[in-house]
Nucleic acid binder design. Structure first.
Lengths: 248, 248
DNA sequence: CGTTTTTTTGAGCAGGATCAAGCAGCGTGG
DNA sequence: CCACGCTGCTTGATCCTGCTCAAAAAAACG
């Protein structure tokens, strides 16, 4: 997976902590607005950690009063009813920031879907930086607005899209998040970070319907199934038309 | 509705602009964090306006580069697909703030559902205040987080709730927003700010199903229908159990 | 009042759920 | 090395919730 990815070390920026070099959050995430010395302070209290699928990240972070950046992998935010019905209400990818926008009374769980690497630090450390850097607050706010926007796109999908459209929309979401500036024309391989049950919980469907729609897409030549968690997408444009993305 | 509500004029605060006295936004909304002189500056550029149902508030505000507080009424945020399918992705009540968290690329419309009174002011005026008052930015951020939370609750409702549960959940939402600290025990009258078609667009259902579920709730004694837009709710607790609110 | 809009009600249909097997991959242990 | 159990995925048969189509009833409005 990481073999053909360029290392993004800042050769000319030796003030940047070792921990932070080649970190996505440093460039696009919340850390992007921090000055080198602030980065230094934060990184001194930061630790990287790896979490297996199904690890409960929410209680892990809140119990220790820590925040974290997602370095790699996918984190799912779920809501569960007493009768067992479950709905994924958000997915977090690198370099998303975890822990601050979870509002107090929220009954939302954060769980690793794939292997997840986190860079975590004490909440207090970030709160101090926020106090002295309005830019940082703005950056975090921007992420929240982006999440709100995505949530609203999914409200449309859940309320108004058919099962085939939902599944295509999901594949499109993964495709664009895995590589935001993908070549329009070419086909490409796609790693599915969610298993069927999770896709169902995300799309408001059952496992069976998700499975049927996947075979349906395959039989119509929109995708090739390589193995359980890997597909080949023939064309982004076709996928987009299958998803019936709303007007822009 | 307003008869038994105390007037909230700050007798002792004669520096508070006339325009702002007895305004909800002044107490719970974004204006709550402003100092009297800031309030003065802002109010000098503010105007109140009334908007009939179906007025397009989004283009009205963005074309004039103005933001606004909702003083009364209900604003719906909708997404529409090319084929006509529509989904309401958010409802704004007083004293919500309009205009800033609509991210640039968002294809979301803001439309009045009821008569809506707004207090609007130039975007630049607020941006200046934001620059000098970190508190204000934090306040706006809080509202965005609250909206994100509500959106996620509806993701669960749209993905996993049945039609009867959806309709009950909607009534519960209106009931709690109309009067956040309502007496637990007693029955009460409720004004529905949305017509059937809008309820359908909010709940991801058709008009017919909404209508059927309403008569269903009536025949089971959960509500009394007074007229098209007015119902009597027998008990909040019963409504809550009908809605199958997820675990907390 | 007639006209239009909104809501209700009914009959029939279908998309997706449910129930129930079967299958494929995979680690474990005999 | 294969039998075994386990987990995750697919496939099939049947059912039912909510949609579609149609029409009447009830409000709103000029």
């Amino acid at each position: 997976m990481g073999k053909d990815r360029k290392e993004r070390v800042d050769i000319h920026n030796s003030d940047v902590p070792v921990l932070c070099r080649s970190c996505e959050a440093r460039h696009q995430g919340v850390c992007a607005v921090l000055a080198p010395d602030q980065l230094q302070r934060l990184s001194r209290q930061s630790t990287k950690s790896v979490h297996a699928p199904k690890s409960d990240l929410h209680t892990q972070l809140t119990s220790q009063e820590r925040y974290a950046n997602v370095l790699s992998g996918v984190v799912k935010l779920t809501k569960t009813a007493r009768d067992g019905r479950q709905q994924i209400v958000g997915l977090q990818f690198a370099p998303d920031f975890l822990g601050r926008d979870q509002s107090p009374g929220s009954d939302t769980e954060a769980t690793a879907s794939t292997n997840v690497r986190l860079c975590s630090f004490p909440a207090s450390a970030l709160d101090e930086l926020v106090a002295e850097t309005p830019e940082l607050e703005r950056r975090i706010h921007q992420q929240t607005v982006a999440e709100l926007d995505e949530a609203r796109d999914w409200l449309f999908a859940l309320g108004r899209k058919t099962a085939p459209e939902k599944v295509a929309s999901f594949l499109l979401l993964i495709a664009t998040h895995a590589n935001p500036d993908r070549d329009e024309e070419e086909g490409f391989e796609l790693e599915l970070p969610l298993k069927r049950a999770e896709m169902a919980d995300f799309l408001g469907l059952t496992i069976e319907t998700v499975s049927r729609q996947m075979t349906n897409l395959r039989s119509r030549g929109v995708i090739d199934v390589i193995d359980r968690g890997r597909i080949q997408v023939e064309s982004l444009a076709v996928l987009r038309s299958e998803a019936h993305v709303d007007a822009g």
